[in-house]
Design a protein around this nucleic acid. Structure first.
Ligand SMILES: [Zn+2]
Ligand SMILES: [Zn+2]
Ligand SMILES: [Zn+2]
Ligand SMILES: [Zn+2]
Lengths: 137, 137
DNA sequence: ATGGCATGTGTTATAATGTAACGCAATCGA
DNA sequence: TCGATTGCGTTACATTATAACACATGCCAT
């Protein structure tokens, strides 16, 4: 019995585990091609190997895509698979990203959408500014 | 006196006027290359001619960039040059985009950021879902 | 006026990001 | 056991964005 398409502890396949590991240990967001380069010595050869793993990890809520950076981060919360609204604060100085959460904000946005006849499924919020460590003062 | 680098009514140059016109008359968002193709018979030859005009128009608040679509829309409000938070509702069926506005939402996000030690400069919010015309029912 | 600076332009080439399409293998459920 | 689903590996390609260089115009301070 060959163990379920080679799945490791969390139910991830080998490629998914490697990509998730790269993002989990990274200081900041990584582009797909940065991940590819990191994993070349693990046998990765083509962008699709990365993108397919990324798609799966996103659908599981284990990682998120930063639309304004074309890059990816590991989720910083225990459970994001049920959440509809993500909030990311991107520091324009050091590049670090923090994932914020606020349920009332999520509701307010959904209500704003509804008032405008729009039925919201998901929502991506990306802030730019300065993090605590990079304050001008 | 050669008229200020060939500027038209709004203070835009020829290229900026052409790009703004293409976005203003479009049904939905356009990619930079879609704009380039539309303007080939006006003398456009290279992506940089588009991207440079786009950069300027964005800095003037006349157009916005949709991060999750890698494309651009004309602003649907009279004045967006002072606004810090944009909200776009993107219909996943018909592709139409509406630009929403809510000052209290903007304040709430800024406050959420501040609570987390983040000093927010700008904010991009992009919703996915179904517009009024594309409701399943 | 003139020399420096900022802005806009045109061009070529290249970088960075993302997919299509094919074949194959393993698993799962009926 | 058969068909549907998911994952993998590969090649080639499509899309999005910039670097670098040369030139022109308008502005402004000396
Ligand atoms: Zn998360
Ligand atoms: Zn920082
Ligand atoms: Zn606007
Ligand atoms: Zn629609």
């Amino acid at each position: 019995m060959k163990s379920d398409h080679h799945r490791s502890p969390m139910g991830l396949t080998k490629n998914q585990t490697l990509v998730f590991g790269a993002l989990s240990h990274a200081e900041g967001p990584l582009s797909a091609y940065a991940i590819l380069d990191q994993l070349r010595d693990k046998g990765f050869r083509a962008p699709l190997q990365v993108y397919r793993a990324l798609d799966k990890l996103i659908s599981l809520g284990l990682i998120h895509r930063l639309e304004s950076l074309n890059s990816f981060v590991a989720c910083q919360h225990p459970e994001c698979d049920d959440r509809e609204s993500m909030v990311f604060a991107i520091c324009e100085i050091c590049g670090k990203v923090s994932e914020l959460a606020d349920d009332s904000l999520e509701n307010q946005i959904k209500t704003l959408a509804k008032r405008n006849g729009f039925s919201m499924k998901t929502c991506a919020i990306e802030l730019r500014g300065h993090c605590r460590d990079c304050r001008p003062n």
